[in-house]
Design a protein around this nucleic acid. Structure first.
Length: 865
RNA sequence: GCCCGUGUGGCGGAAUGGUAGACGCGACAGACUUAAAAUCUGUUACUCGUAAGGGUGUGUGGGUUCGAGUCCCUCCACGGGCACCA
């Protein structure tokens, strides 16, 4: 007597999962080189910061990537799927302070821990390409890139106001300032003037913008965010003759409104304002007040428009008219020219200001329908009160007025960007040293390539404040590479975003040629990244820098491509329920229970607990789940399935213990199925090539043909990155096999075919159980090395369908027919349905709609209406 | 304020303009069991009805269409990004 399916022992995943993980690693199953004749495919997930523990969010990110990598491999691609560590950065130094561990030891220890966690999830990585950005070899090369950029004129130094983080004691890039606060410390940012190294990302502003249009494989959302960040404005700069002597140059994107200009506004930081403050007490006070406000920074959004009449006037360039000049707090010095002409009638901000200070408003654009007399008027229309522009449309007028101003030599077409150059200096130890020295004779000198690398000194002291490199007794003292006199090393290190701006290139190289990025063969072979996967939080920072680096490296001759990532996928965050006490203090889920009334209470005290929203898992909100615990209790396969189930991968994922439990059950269900089939003599490794459909009984034929539909569904879903649907369709397939289990012994051949392809389709998601089943069914090679299943197009055509019959668009019944059935025959059958008869009897039949194989709709004029 | 996205059962979510709710979670029931768990098999949008069979349903209000979750317009709610960018 053979075993009933319910008697099969549960799946003991632990030994099986470690068996295959060891096998893959030992046999270098996923190692790649560029000698394959298959087309290449480069799958990359954003690499990890070695904080100490892998987060469930990482698991989701890497699972999505791994499914894709395994799928593409099965589809016959030569897949590069590397892994590495974004290992420089602040937390290592914080740990050094707190735990008295050297940043290097702390970092590499964390990498060790996290690597074992990652290995326990069974990802198909090429571990031979693994590296950390703090590896000497890696950052040594980064220094060469820095020199190359310098040679190309992309590096410069500038004394400038920078964002100073008073808590982390370091400079922040514009992009690292969130709502006026440091992105990590959340402390209000102060302004400070420091000598800084800058990378000229603005040289590429136009290209970074226009190339976005070609990135078809990127989410629109990310492209929009980058577009806004680059912030291109095309317009015209215009010089106004001023009573103070010098001209005031303004920038406007709407020069056609110049006849409506009633005043000029300049920034409190404008040269003229600064000059005025020297002699004018009122102006000085106004500017000082402004500075205070801007440092506090909190009311920026609601800040009232304030201005001060300077008493200075300018001449309107096209009218016999003087305009007053105001210092205004809403004019930014670091955008455009720091001065604007104001046309209150057609600009909201100017209008508000004019109202407040009683300045004239002159309308120069008439609405098309003339109905809108409301001001400010911001829409398109026809120019009025504007001399030679009268009667023109806004677009025409813009062109004409710029031409005229250019001709008169008082204006010129100009473009401004919001994008600023990238300040890369950090006053930190744990980063890539900037290869430069300060010489008393020669000034700042960059090292020659032969003097590289500049390695971090291992012996550093974190006990005193500031940069340990600066405090180091010997490290910074060197000879000037140019004149040989004693000089001092640059003690700033590079922003860690520099490290992550080219790591995807390093992955293209083996360890053997890693030091020679100029040997471009491998890079040319693998780049671009065909599928990049990561969090949307990097939409601007990392993704823009990486694009910039690729373009700059191309200009320096390192790479051939100008865009690094062909397809980008941004996955959602993993969220979990949150609980708080009434005083707002967060609670662990274990501290809370549901009471009889259905409300939540704190177990220890019985006080009321408030159920919060699902929030991104974070330690502070006490709602994190530890991947190690899940893997231990449910196995890697169950966790992998769970993190991609149910929710589209680009959406936030709501964690649920029940859902995870369900995936554990599913893995068991699959295991029992495989075991049962094996015990009934199903031999997947010996499938017959041909199936005679006609000879099969209807039920089995339906099962087999239906399974081809499943293969198509799964394949399409995975290609479209709809991982939740992939799981749903596979479950569908498993369910239909379960329902046909009585037939196994009489149709072993069909069940063998189905089993073989089911394993193949599940393998990218749950590779361990599939590798094991594959082996037990008698296959020699790995399922990971087998081609993806194919389906018969012919089988997708169904012999009978349920055709919906509608009356006035409402479903009144269905008829089972051949999809090719002719119109008249279908109508005849449809009209025999009782529901249809009843509905039609209410009025006169006016029209009949027939869409072959899709629908029938009878249109009836309702007698009652 | 501007830009983008999202609104579908108790929940996560399916649905080339053509039978709304695939798949899963939860719940309920049956089988197996002394029993429970596990497992297998069903049922499960709401509503009227014993039933047969009706009616109502995809945030709101309108429109296009034989037919709208899907396309167009209006408004509302939630989420995200940018935020005095001239």
């Amino acid at each position: 007597m053979s075993l009933d399916i319910s008697e099969i022992a549960p799946y003991d995943f632990a030994p099986i999962e470690s068996k295959w993980q060891n096998f893959w690693l030992k046999n270098r199953s996923f190692s790649t080189d560029c000698n394959s004749s298959n087309p290449k495919y480069y799958v990359l997930e954003m690499f990890m910061y070695p904080s100490g523990k892998v987060h469930i969010g990482h698991v989701r990110n890497y699972t999505i990537g791994d499914i894709f990598a395994r799928f593409k491999r099965a589809k016959g691609f030569s897949v590069l799927h590397p892994v590495g560590w974004d290992a420089f950065g602040l937390p290592a130094e914080n740990a050094a302070l707190k735990q008295k561990a050297h940043p290097k030891n702390w970092t590499y220890r964390n990498i060790g821990i996290m690597k074992s966690q990652i290995l326990s999830l069974g990802f198909s990585y090429d571990w031979e390409r693994e590296f950390a950005t703090c590896d000497e070899k890696y950052y040594a090369f980064q220094q060469k890139i820095f020199l190359a950029f310098h040679k190309k004129g992309l590096v410069y130094r500038k004394k400038s106001e920078v964002n100073w983080d008073p808590v982390d004691n370091c400079v922040l890039a514009n992009e690292q300032v969130v709502d006026g606060c440091g992105w990590r410390s959340c402390a209000p940012v102060e302004k400070k003037s420091v000598d800084q190294w800058f990378l000229k990302i603005t040289d590429f502003a136009d290209e970074l913008l226009t190339e976005l249009d070609k990135l078809d494989g990127w989410p629109e959302k990310v492209k929009i965010m980058q577009r806004n960040w680059i912030g291109k404005s095309e317009g015209c700069s215009i010089a106004f003759k001023s009573s103070a002597g010098e001209n005031i140059t303004v920038f406007s994107t709407r020069p056609e409104t110049i006849f409506g200009a009633t005043f000029l506004a300049i920034s409190p930081d404008h040269e003229l304002a600064q000059k005025l403050a020297l002699s004018n007490e009122k102006a000085k006070r106004f500017i000082d007040e402004f500075k205070k406000g801007s440092v506090a920074g909190e009311f920026l959004d609601k800040q009232e428009k304030l201005g001060l009449d300077t008493g200075i006037t300018v001449s309107h360039p096209l009218l016999e008219k003087k305009l007053p000049v105001y210092i205004a707090n809403f004019v930014l010095m670091d955008y455009g020219t720091g001065a604007v002409f104001a046309t209150p009638a057609h600009d909201e901000r100017d209008y508000e200001f004019a109202m407040k200070y009683g300045l004239p408003v002159e309308r120069v654009i008439r609405a098309k329908d003339e109905s809108s007399g409301e001001l400010p008027y911001l829409e398109d229309g026809t120019l009025i009160n504007s001399d030679f522009l009268n009667g023109l449309s806004v677009a025409e007028a813009r062109k004409v007025v710029i031409d005229r101003l250019t001709q008169l030599k008082i204006g010129k077409r100009e473009t401004f960007f919001k994008l600023r150059d990238w300040g890369v200096s950090r006053q930190r130890y744990w980063g890539c040293p900037i290869p430069a020295v300060h010489c008393s004779k020669c000034g700042i000198v960059l090292l020659a390539e032969k003097n590289l690398p500049v390695l971090l000194p291992p012996d550093v002291d974190f006990s005193s404040p500031g940069n340990p490199l600066d405090n180091h007794p010997t490290w910074k003292h060197v000879e000037c590479p140019t004149c040989g006199v004693p000089a001092v090393r640059e003690t700033d290190t590079l922003d860690t975003f520099v490290d992550s701006s080219w790591y995807f290139l390093r992955f293209c190289l083996n360890d053997s040629n890693a030091e020679n990025l100029l040997a471009r063969k491998d890079i040319d072979h693998w780049m671009q990244v065909d599928q990049y996967i990561g969090g949307v939080e990097h939409a601007i920072l990392h993704l823009l820098y990486a694009r910039f680096f690729t373009k700059a490296l191309a200009d320096c001759g390192f790479v051939s491509i100008r865009e690094p990532f062909r397809n980008l996928f941004t996955q959602g965050m993993v969220c979990n329920a949150t609980y708080r006490r009434e005083n707002g203090e967060w609670l662990f889920p274990e501290e809370v229970r549901k009471n009889k009334g259905g409300d939540f209470e704190v177990i220890a005290t019985g006080e009321k607990a408030i159920v919060g929203r699902f929030e991104k898992m974070s330690k502070s909100k006490k709602n994190v789940v530890d991947p190690d615990v899940i893997v231990k209790n449910y196995g890697a396969d169950a966790l992998r399935i769970f993190v991609i189930s149910d929710t589209p991968p680009d959406k936030d994922f709501p964690w649920s213990d029940d859902g995870l439990e369900g995936c554990g059950r599913f893995i068991n269900r699959v295991w029992r199925l495989f075991s049962f089939l094996e015990s009934r003599g199903v031999c997947a490794a010996q499938c017959s090539a041909k199936v005679d459909l006609e000879s099969l009984p209807a039920g089995i034929r339906e099962l087999y043909v239906g399974f081809h539909r499943t293969i198509k569904n799964v394949t399409d879903a995975i290609e479209g990155r709809h991982m939740n649907k992939v799981v749903a369709h596979i479950r569908d397939g498993v369910n239909s096999v379960y329902l046909a289990l009585d037939e196994v012994e009489s149709h072993r051949g069909i069940f063998s075919l189905i089993t073989r392809d089911l394993i193949k389709m599940l393998a990218p998601i749950a590779p361990h159980i599939c590798e094991e089943a594959w082996e037990r069914f008698g296959f020699r090679e790995l399922v990971s090395e087998n081609p993806w299943p194919t389906y018969e197009e012919d089988y997708l055509k169904v012999s009978l369908i349920n055709l919906p019959i509608q009356v006035n668009g409402k479903l009144r019944g269905t008829i089972e027919i051949d999809p090719e059935e002719e119109e008249s025959e279908v109508f005849a059958k449809a009209l025999r349905l009782a529901g249809v008869q009843n509905a039609i009897a209410r009025g006169a039949l006016q029209k009949r709609i027939f869409i072959k194989g899709k629908i029938v709709n009878f249109v009836v004029a309702d007698a009652e209406t």
